[in-house]
Every structure is written in C-alpha cells, then in structure tokens.
Amino acid sequence: MTVLEGTLQEKYMVQKITIQEHILRRLEALGIIPGTKLMLMNRKKNGTCIIKVRGTRWAIGPMIAGGIFVEKAGEETAVEGQEAGEHA
C-alpha cells in the first residue's frame, strides 16, 4: 500500500519508492528511503499528506505520496525520532 491509502496517526515503514528519478533523489537526500520509519499525520481529499520522518514534518503532494510504498511498522520498529530515547 502507498501513503495515500494509509491510516492517519499510524506508523509505517517505507518498503520501496517508485517515482521519477529526480524526485527520488530528493527524497533520498531528505532521508526518505526504504527502511525509514514514517508517521502519517494528516491528509487532504486531493491526497496531499503531512508525514513525519526522522523528527521532521513534510507536506508531500499526491504524486509523491502515491509513490511511497509502506507497510505497517511492527512492534519492534517504533518510529524513530519520538522514541529514539528509549535506547537510553
């Protein structure tokens, strides 16, 4: 499933990203890569979403949201950022 079909306030992990090369590179530079944990914060009717990745919120357009494939994050893969301190 992609971010477009995700449930709000749910934590996910990025599986793969299928999108044009130049946007892919951009997302990579921002640390949105396979294996990254992501939380879906908000979504509009047209598919524009707010996601939280590595402690930062991003607004992403429907095209990008539809290109990010995710799966539900398991118990052991808590979203990084908020919970990173549990290692302490």
Binding site: Q20, I23, R26, L27, L30, T48, I50, T56, R57, W58, A59, I60, G61, P62, M63, I64
Partner: peptide, 10 residues
C-alpha cells in the same frame, strides 16, 4: 503537470 509538493513544515 505533476504535483510535486515537497516542503518542510517547521
């Protein structure tokens, strides 16, 4: 046109 909004929300 492709909607490639990508902006950080501080």
């Amino acid at each position: 046109s492709e909607n490639v909004l990508l902006i950080e929300l501080p």
